[in-house]
């Protein structure tokens, strides 16, 4: 046993066990969807990425070799590659601008504050360079450890730390006016 928490479930998925299929979807779909939404900033595109990722999971399950890699790490790599494919396509068709964000204005109603913050943060994150965004998404949102996140990104731990620092500095700058609220 390698200690990969997904291995046993994958073996059952490979046999087409319906309960295992549902369990794996419940365990991984929200994570993949959240990763894609935060990388792409577009919920519809994120759903496409999540769907494509699962097509690859189902194909890979019977071929999965225990002990060679951690399934969650492989999964993040696949989903991120699919996100990068889409980001590349956006650049190619010269629509690199981040998705439309609601113009942030004063929000007198306190109920609007949370939604407003969400929109502001989403916009600020989308304006980060892709690698910085990826670092924040993996470490903060996906809650991966620094070693695993660096491995997924194919960089050293020091490089990851540098990307994170620059990203957070930029985010603080972009959201500075909210601190005084």
């Amino acid at each position: 046993m390698t200690g990969d928490p997904d291995e046993a479930l994958l073996a059952r998925v490979a046999k087409g066990d319906p309960a295992a299929v549902r369990a794996l979807m419940a365990r991984k779909l929200p994570r993949i969807l959240s990763l894609a939404q935060r990388m792409l900033g577009d919920p519809a595109e994120a759903e496409d990425v999540a769907q494509e990722t699962f097509v690859r999971i189902w194909k890979q399950a019977p071929k999965w070799k225990p002990g060679e890699a951690k399934f969650d790490t492989w999964l993040h790599r696949v989903a991120l590659n699919l996100c990068y494919d889409r980001l590349r396509r956006r650049r190619e068709i010269a629509t690199d601008a981040p998705p439309e964000q609601v113009d942030e204005g004063p929000a007198p109603d306190r109920r609007l504050l949370a939604a407003d913050t969400s929109v502001r943060v989403s916009g600020a994150l989308q304006r980060l360079p892709e690698r910085q965004r990826e670092a924040v998404v993996l470490c903060h949102y996906q809650e991966l450890g620094n070693i695993e996140a660096a491995a997924i990104m194919g960089v050293s731990v020091e490089a990851l730390e540098s990307l994170l620092s620059r990203a957070r500095r930029a985010l603080r700058g972009a959201l500075a006016d909210m601190v005084e609220r």
Partner: peptide, 28 residues
């Protein structure tokens, strides 16, 4: 900054997405 980042909650998976994912899954 952590709190600001956490304020952005992703949208949950739609029923249609879940159905599509399950339809492509390995069969018994």
């Amino acid at each position: 900054l952590d709190a600001f980042l956490d304020a952005w909650r992703p949208k949950p998976a739609s029923a249609a997405l879940m159905d599509t994912v399950l339809a492509a899954a390995p069969k018994p």
